[in-house]
Design a protein around this nucleic acid. Sequence first.
DNA 1: AATAGGTTCATGCAAATGCATGGAGTTCTG
DNA 2: CAGAACTCCATGCATTTGCATGAACCTATT
Lengths: 148, 148
Amino acid sequence: MPPVSRTERAAEAWESLFRAQVAVMRNLAADDVWDELSMREYDVLFTLGRAPGRRLRLHDLNREILLSQPSLSRLVERLAGSGYVTREDDPGDRRGTVVVLTVEGARVQKSVGRRHAASIRRHVGPALSEDELDTLTELCAKLRDAQD
Amino acid sequence: MPPVSRTERAAEAWESLFRAQVAVMRNLAADDVWDELSMREYDVLFTLGRAPGRRLRLHDLNREILLSQPSLSRLVERLAGSGYVTREDDPGDRRGTVVVLTVEGARVQKSVGRRHAASIRRHVGPALSEDELDTLTELCAKLRDAQD
DNA sequence: AATAGGTTCATGCAAATGCATGGAGTTCTG
DNA sequence: CAGAACTCCATGCATTTGCATGAACCTATT
């Protein structure tokens, strides 16, 4: 076995992470829990639910969601049309738009969220031991924190 | 600290993995290496390059690429138009289409690949120790292998 | 305080994506 | 071995996405 450089190690780790994400994502997407929300819509509502006051500036929301700014703008527009969020002016910065999760939005997010969590348990839970799951959580958190 | 159930551990691990993927992906996408190929196009050419004979059935290719079958069909169509792949009939199964990487396709993939690898080294390499990178690789491989 | 430069968001428009479907080929079943 | 069921791929069509751009606002510089 030849010596493995740091570059190769980084490339292998990313490749492995990426492929695992693709494989798990495909299984999660195939599970029958996306009748009320698409995965991206769920991601937005979930992120809002975690935020203080269940509200976030569009710009801040955009940092959590892998979507271009115009696409997120229109996704939020559709969510507002469905009554799951409202859009308010930011009094502190009048350029900004604050996206606020509605009661109905929170309800739908939780409804889908419960089934999604069960789906995750089925697809991710059995793959690794509890210690391994914790290690994976920590390593990914570390990787994420090192970005930008 | 309350006891943590296996369901919670799985959900945390997936959440952490997913967010890390989003954060890294955003940085990789922002790097100036995608002038000749989009990330998805690169992914297809890269996957073909790894396959034996640098060729893959469209259906098999689709299992590696997170894209619907019609979308992949059209992506391959565009790659063929650019001269990076050719489409051949599968003699063994006449329903099938075999996608073959061309010499030019391999050249472009390598050209982008070199810069992409350097980009990965910059964004992923410094985040973790070498042991941690190896551990992450193994855990993600295990997770991936457990899918389906 | 005026102006230049930066930030935040929305919209026009072309391109890419997914869903539903259909055609062609293969495999299973009685 | 006939036909039903399934698999693989492509195409029509509506939706979603990204890029380019512009409007409104904020901030820094002089």
